[in-house]
């Protein structure tokens, strides 16, 4: 519970943060700190410096950008949960945030912090995959956009370069007849996802599945999309049987974590079950 010595910097702007990152190659960015600081207290992480970006004004906030909703990387969970715009258009975000940690965590934790940390059991990675979000990063060479599908690379590893800062997450507004749901099986000790499944389903006028995206977190080393499930459902009538059959594919081709609470075999089973539950709920909601 006693971190090693580090230097603390507070950045006033993204540019200043970038400069500090270049000057301190071993530094870590600090936003909400709810993953990083516990790791430092246990000396699992011992960065030489922290660059606090939590007060950089341009990094926080939620805005309506026409056909997209853009959320700044240091926007806190609680602010997202309270946003009327988000609740109307992307209800899966408050649904997922509601099961993250406790009130204190949600008051401090940030969306960008969670995504950039890429904890294998974090909730939001599954959600951004299912929503087809885009993540914007700024580095010394300028700005680039990373699709959520390419963002999560491995255990605690993302497509971000060490000298890049995640600045915002941009979500397409879903079309009509879209339903979405996040279903989570929480670890009773940590509250983290043993398995979390996010599903976003758009139905055509004929009631068949026009589009579907499924993201899974907790089960493996990093959050993944389940295209095989999606492909099995597109164009289908989303009956219970069709959802059940598609969900059976959810665990195919995945690597599963194993720990004292849940073995890999059990996680594979839970992946199928929770993908099914998320799809079922999303379809119900899409039907209104």
């Amino acid at each position: 519970m006693y971190p090693s010595t580090f230097t603390y910097y507070r950045a006033g702007s993204v540019q200043e943060a970038l400069k500090l990152l270049v000057e301190n190659p071993d530094a870590k960015l600090l936003a909400g700190g709810h993953s990083l600081i516990p790791a430092m207290k246990l000396r699992l992480a011992s960065p030489s410096a922290l660059i606090d970006i939590s007060r950089v004004p341009e990094l926080a906030g939620i805005r309506d950008a026409g056909d997209r909703i853009v959320i700044g990387a240091t926007t806190r969970y609680d602010d997202i949960q309270r946003s009327e715009l988000v609740r109307q258009v992307l209800p899966i975000l408050p649904e997922a945030i509601d099961v993250i940690g406790d009130l204190q965590v949600r008051n401090m934790g940030t969306i960008g912090g969670s995504l950039a940390h890429a904890d294998p059991a974090a909730d939001l990675p599954a959600v951004v995959l299912a929503l087809g979000a885009e993540l914007k990063a700024v580095g010394p060479d300028g700005e680039r956009t990373i699709p959520a599908d390419q963002f999560f690379v491995d255990l605690f590893t993302t497509a971000l370069q060490p000298n890049e800062i995640l600045t915002e997450i941009s979500f397409p507004k879903p079309p009509a007849r879209t339903g979405m749901s996040y279903q989570k099986f929480a670890n009773p000790a940590s509250g983290y996802a043993v398995v979390g499944a996010a599903a976003v389903v758009t139905l055509g006028e004929d009631g068949k599945v026009a589009a579907v995206r499924v993201g899974v977190t907790g089960a493996g080393p990093y959050a993944v999309r389940r295209q095989n499930v999606e492909q099995a459902l597109v164009g289908q009538e989303p009956t219970a049987a069709a959802i059940e059959a598609a969900s059976q594919l959810a665990s195919e081709g995945m690597t599963f974590n194993s720990d004292i609470f849940a073995s890999d075999e059990y996680r594979a089973h839970l992946t199928r079950v929770f993908v099914k539950r998320a799809l079922t709920r999303a379809v119900e909601r899409a039907r209104g």
Binding site: N187, P188, A189, S190, Y192, D259, I260, F261
Partner: peptide, 12 residues
Amino acid sequence: LLSASLMDYAIP
């Protein structure tokens, strides 16, 4: 001890 923290040991 694998359940050596409150992240792994589930007090209610």
